[in-house]
Design a protein around this nucleic acid. Structure first.
Lengths: 120, 120
DNA sequence: CTGGATCCTTAGGGATACTG
DNA sequence: CAGTATCCCTAAGGATCCAG
């Protein structure tokens, strides 16, 4: 109703930052997104996920998985306990991250081409 | 022509990760995206940017700005040098990050509501 | 196989003060 | 105003080994 003659500035800028920072809190770090990708792509077992992500260590993976589970971005299910069978799966919530992942993917591809082309 | 009966798996997953990792290399960290937002929103001066971002220190800002400049994600222009006037502005390239920012923003908002609603 | 425990290194970043 | 210079501290992450 009311007209806001002003273009977006300080307040919008800050609001933008706050939400973005929330998002970054969750998905920032070297591994979280990669783990999400792996799980969304269908990897379920610990070693499977580990192998799918170059250079990740089991310690880091365990820690990040726990973190992601806490935030309900993945679901951990224990199926057995003789040789211990655990499965990690995506949740609706983790699927909602897809847009972010896609955006990162697109931009990253573009960026890669740019640096490949240019300097060095 | 050829049928690929298989759904995307390992190779696509890895390709996805590589590009995403490239993107993360550039924009990860606590501050880079926030700085980009600030500059894209029109803040140009060092102190202006500094004030627009809660809790950032001048040291960190200086470092990140330099980094972003190296990667051509912002442009630094010195206009004068009596009281020293410097302007940071967005580049086409930094504008291309907008999609990522929007995605983060949307998801972050959603996430914020989710945690607000739930636990604690 | 699924992780936990331990040790260690480094980069990120806060605080504060200072220079051109 | 636009940064630098220190100092210091913590968390992220690598390496390796070990336990259930």
């Amino acid at each position: 109703m009311a007209k806001k003659t002003k273009a977006p500035t300080e307040k919008d800028c800050l609001a933008m930052m706050l939400s973005v920072r929330d998002a970054l809190d969750v998905i920032s770090g070297k591994w979280k997104i990669l783990i999400l990708i792996s799980v969304i792509y269908g990897n379920k077992r610990f070693r499977e996920i580990e192998r799918s992500i170059p250079n990740i260590s089991s310690k880091v993976l365990a820690k990040e998985l726990k973190d992601l589970e806490d935030r309900q971005l993945i679901k951990r299910t224990v199926y057995d306990d003789s040789p211990v069978l655990v499965e990690y799966t995506a949740t609706d919530y983790s699927n909602s991250v897809s847009e972010v992942i896609i955006a990162l993917y697109n931009w990253g591809q573009n960026h890669r081409m740019k640096i490949m082309g240019k300097r060095r």
